[in-house]
């Protein structure tokens, strides 16, 4: 067990190195310059100032030297400062992360809570009317892009029913949970749609196999109710694939809320990352990417450990 953890940890660190280096090199390839972004169009006529600022920010050093310096700083716990706003990158992340994290978690919860019964009952009624109806729903949910769903939700729930606001964000700390959820529910639902459909299908497929197992028949022969058999006997053996994908989805959601955050004008990591990219704000891009990648890798490692909880047979090895 200890050995497994060490190997996992080494792999995790290697992944983060690779991600940060690739991001650094990619941003380097982009046309444009952070100093021009900082000074605006006038910068083009004032090369002395541009040169001075470049020198101050040490932008003239070779790429790998700058990457090495950044890595050194990060290892000492310093993510650096934004070239543009002078705000420490760590502060920016701390400021934006609650929004993104809440959206991602809420979306994951919505996806899981809906996917389990949809998957289970369509498997139980395989080929029946309910199954076909739910299959139609999941196909639709998969084929509609998130931003289209978002626009549909805004039309339905804001313009028609006026239940939820279409833009903006209420912080829990400022306005309380209910006001916060009101602003979070639409974007989270739009985000949840695709993972929901994928998970429901995975659970359905695995569950159809599980329901043919002898132990399900023997559970029936014990006189247990169908719902109990589905949830207590068939779900766990059918959840392994869905759990794997679930980890990938949660990681993906944390980095992938950009479009939805933009549509709903939410102050999350995604919108911050976009503006950093527009401004060639290298350290901000690096910081946010590193953060997202870390969360992604950690979540997936945690999911691997979750298998042990799901299937006692793996625990022995």
């Amino acid at each position: 067990m200890g050995k497994i953890l060490i190997v996992r940890l080494a792999r995790l660190i290697a992944t983060l190195f690779a991600v940060s280096l690739l991001t650094f090199l990619l941003v380097e390839q982009l046309p444009g310059d952070p100093v021009i972004a900082l000074l605006g169009p006038e910068g083009l006529y004032d090369w002395d100032t541009v040169e001075r600022i470049r020198e101050e920010l040490k932008l003239n050093d070779p790429t790998l030297v700058r990457y090495g310096r950044w890595v050194g700083d990060v290892l000492q716990g310093d993510l650096g400062k934004s070239y543009i706003t002078d705000q420490p990158v760590a502060d920016a992340i701390r400021d934006r992360v609650p929004v993104t994290l809440e959206l991602a978690l809420l979306a994951t919860v919505i996806a899981a809570v809906c996917a389990v019964p949809i998957g289970a009952f369509s498997a139980y009624r395989e080929g029946g009317r309910l199954d076909r109806l739910l299959s139609g729903f999941t196909t639709a949910a998969l084929s509609i892009p998130g931003f289209v769903a978002a626009i549909f939700f805004i039309w339905l729930f804001t313009l028609k029913f006026n239940w939820f606001p279409s833009t903006g964000w209420n912080r829990i700390t400022d306005k309380g949970l209910w006001a916060n959820l009101k602003t979070a529910i639409l974007p989270a639902s739009a985000l949840a749609l695709a993972p929901l459909a994928v998970n429901a299908r995975l659970i359905r497929a695995d569950m159809i196999g599980t329901l043919k197992e002898d132990y399900v028949l023997s559970a029936r022969a014990k006189g247990l109710k169908s719902r109990y058999i589905l949830m207590r006997h068939a779900l766990r053996p059918s959840a392994l694939t869905a759990v794997t994908v679930f980890g990938l989805q949660l990681g993906g959601l944390i980095g992938g809320t950009v479009v939805i955050e933009t549509i709903f004008a939410l102050p999350g990591l995604g919108t911050r990352l976009i503006s950093a990219i527009y401004q060639r704000d290298v350290l901000m891009i690096q910081g946010i990417t590193l953060f997202v990648a870390t969360v992604y890798v950690v979540v997936n490692t945690a999911v691997d450990l979750l298998y042990l909880a799901l299937d006692p047979r793996i625990r022995r090895q």
Binding site: D214, Y215, S218, H233
Partner: peptide, 8 residues
Amino acid sequence: MTSLNPVV
């Protein structure tokens, strides 16, 4: 081998 649920 198959009539008992492996995860219960």
